[in-house]
Structure formats: structure tokens, C-alpha cells
Design a protein around this nucleic acid. Structure first.
Lengths: 168, 168
DNA sequence: TTAAACTTTCAAAAAGTTTTGAAAGTTTAA
DNA sequence: TTAAACTTTCAAAACTTTTTGAAAGTTTAA
């Protein structure tokens, strides 16, 4: 396969995977494009390569910055803004886990905590089934939360320094 | 909060979480409803409770069966089919991880393997950046895959029997 | 058989999400 | 200042996904 075809395929696949995991397809594609770019790119270049509009490119780039996956870069003597992606896959995984924990896990835990407080007659199967499911899910969610916190919190934890280094 | 309000809120939250993770909202809601139901429910009851059409209910129930999250049940002397959900959260997590691995991780690994084979001039930054990102992501994906396989494969592995039992 | 009870299908409609692009806003060099 | 270069916004349009519901299919008891 030619390098250009391979790049296209990578961008397409990354976009598809993103959309299956609740991440907007274009956002994943822009990220993919920057991941395989040796140099930072301008909004213009991104628009052109992916055939997307200026508005879309701008919003997507801002979102990616919000996720901590890309950064703006200024070249001396130039007006244009350049964008580049962190290329360390562990940082990327860490960053995505961190953001999803904050944006999705935490709100769910808040709701589950509230629902765990609902009281009722322990002999009523309607109540006891509800209560068991909610408290079980709450326990699981909190364990996942705690585990992520430990794993992601310290810059050089046992986790990143130890076990997972084997994987690299 | 009243039990009925709490049930409604649970179904709503579960649906929202599902859609943030690429699972159809209705599917997550039907699952939530069955999770907190002490008894199996009929298609009719599900349609009614969630205000969805027969067609939607039927398709969603089939999908959930396909994900291994719910089962059909027959009551002796009755024509209707009843549906009930496995209520063990670890089974649920396991099942979802298993399915997503099969449906999404495996196809991505196939593409990455193919893209890893692309050859080029190591001094060309275009090629070397592409190659490094692709092979790094491939390594990560394979490690995740292997880890999941080990964790999910054996019915009573060290994983489920050991470490994670602490979490329950 | 038959017909009632139930399940499944699928094309069209509705709902939800993403994208566009022109206009407004901002920044900078001169 | 000014105007050129660039970025941001947002309502409307395009696109995607989900849902509907009526019709077709299937199963069962008699």
C-alpha cells in the first residue's frame, strides 16, 4: 500500500472507531491527521486535507484542545496558528480516560449516590431489586473511579512507572 | 425521593450514559428497566413503560439478547415471551467488554496490522511519523486486547476470582 | 385445517447530530 | 488609526440515526 493510501485509511479508521465510542467522527479524524503529521498544521491545511469547512475545523480544533489532545503553536513571524498533537499514545489514553471520568463518570456517580439514598420496604421486591441494582452499580462505578484516580493522578505512579511500562 | 421517581431517574441516567458511550439510548433504557424489575417483563409492558413502539421494542430486545445482556423466558401455559436481565454487574461489565472487543477492537487491530506493514524511507519524516504513530497504537491495542482476553476468557480466572473480588 | 395470539420486518417519518459558510469579531503590522 | 490576516460564531442545511406502525410472518390450541 502507498503511504498516501495508508494515511487516508488510518484517518478513516480512527474516525470510525471514534464514532463507535461516542466521539464525533470529524474530531477523531482531525486528531488522526495531526497524529501522523511530522509538523504542526494550520486550520487551512486541515480544512483542505479533510475537505471540511472553516467553521467545522475551528470548532473541532477547539474541542480537541479542550480534551487536551492537541495544542496551538505559534511560529515566530507568522500570524497563523499551527496545531500539533501529542504523539505519546500513553498520554493520549491517559488524557481521554481523565476527561471521560470527569465528564461522564462523575455525574453518573452523583445520580447513583442520590438514588442509593431512596428508602423503602425491604420486603417489597420492587424496592429491593431497585436498591440492589443501584447500590451494586454504584459500588462498581466508585471502584472504577478510584482506580482511575490512582492510575491517572500521580504523574509517575506505580502504575505508569511499573506494570504498564512492560507494555510499551 | 419516591421509588417511582427514582426508577424513572435511573432509566433516564442509564440511557444518557449509554448514548455518551455509543450505545443507543433506548437500548440502555430497556436494559435499565429490566435491571430494576424483580420479574421478567413482556414486550407489551416494556412498550408501555417507556412509551416506545412495538417495532422499536422488538429490535431493541433482540439487540440486547445479541449483547448477551438479557434473556427470553417462557412461562408455562403462556404464549407471551418474557424478558429478564442478568443482574450481576460484573457479568454485565464482562459481557459488554467482551462484545466491544469483538466488534470494535478486533477490526481496528486488523487495519493497524495492515498499516504497520507499509514500508518507506526511514529518513522521510512523513513516513517515519506515520509509522511510529501506527505501530505505537498497534502495540497499545494489542496489549489491551491481550489483557482483556486473559481477564474475560476463563470463567473463573485469577482476575475474577482474585483481585476484583475485593471490589464487590 | 383455522384463527387468534403473538413476533418480526422494513420503508417512511421523526429526531438528533454534524456541517456549512457567510458575517461578525479580533489581532497585528505598518 | 487602518486594513489585511486571521479566528470565531451560529442559524440553516445536510446528513445520520432512531423510531414508528402497519403489514407480513409464525406459532399454537382446538
Amino acid at each position: 500500500m502507498e503511504l498516501e493510501d495508508a494515511k487516508r485509511k488510518f484517518i478513516e479508521s480512527w474516525g470510525k472507531l471514534g464514532s463507535e465510542w461516542g466521539i464525533n467522527r470529524t474530531m477523531a479524524q482531525v486528531h488522526a491527521l495531526l497524529l501522523i503529521s511530522p509538523d504542526p498544521l494550520t486550520t487551512e491545511e486541515i480544512m483542505e486535507t479533510l475537505s471540511i469547512s472553516r467553521g467545522n475545523a475551528n470548532m473541532t480544533l477547539r474541542d480537541l484542545i479542550g480534551w487536551g489532545l492537541i495544542e496551538k503553536q505559534h511560529k515566530p513571524g507568522e500570524r497563523k496558528e499551527y496545531f500539533f498533537a501529542d504523539k505519546d499514545v500513553w498520554n493520549i489514553a491517559k488524557q481521554v480516560a481523565k476527561e471521560r471520568r470527569k465528564r461522564e463518570l462523575e455525574p453518573v456517580i452523583r445520580v447513583l449516590d442520590e438514588l442509593s439514598k431512596v428508602t423503602g420496604d425491604a420486603n417489597d421486591p420492587e424496592f429491593s431489586t431497585f436498591n440492589k441494582s443501584v447500590t451494586d452499580i454504584n459500588k462498581l462505578a466508585k471502584n472504577v473511579d478510584r482506580t482511575l484516580e490512582t492510575m491517572l493522578g500521580a504523574e509517575e505512579s506505580w502504575f505508569w512507572g511499573g506494570i504498564f511500562k512492560l507494555f510499551k
